[in-house]
Amino acid sequence: MTIKEIQDEIVDEFSMLTDWMDKYSLLIEIGNELDSFEEEHRTEQNLIEGCQSKVWLHAWLEDDKIRFMADSDAIIVKGIVSLLIRILDKRTPDEILNSELFFIDEIGLKEHLSPTRSNGLVSMVKQMRMYALAFKTKMEN
């Protein structure tokens, strides 16, 4: 599936839920199901410090695809982190660099990716793109 298709799928999953409680329940569930973060990568370098919550992001290259592993101390943030990984993990640098993330707006969780929400998510997305750029440069050399 393409980045767009996965986002469409996520939007579908959430569109059935009209009540905010159900939406957040699902998000919490998704957060709880996130693959566990390998402790050796819980380093200062991989830490993205928001004012309200922390995010850890680790990236590496595997067969020309970028792999991500992430975590957060807040479960709602972790839910969104989990969705971002579902969308952007195992992609080529170009796919990530050319992607447009629209799902968050469409499932009505826009406020969590606004720059004024200091939960680390905006920086995480930025960081994921930075990794894509760095790996792209590395692969071209």
Binding site: Y24, Q52, I75, I76
Partner: peptide
């Protein structure tokens, strides 16, 4: 329960509290 999660969910219920440091 992380304070950020509690604050976010309370906000959905119209309740404004402060969370964080």
């Amino acid at each position: 329960i992380h304070p950020f999660d509690a604050g976010t969910l309370l906000d959905k219920m119209g309740i404004a509290v402060r969370t964080g440091h």
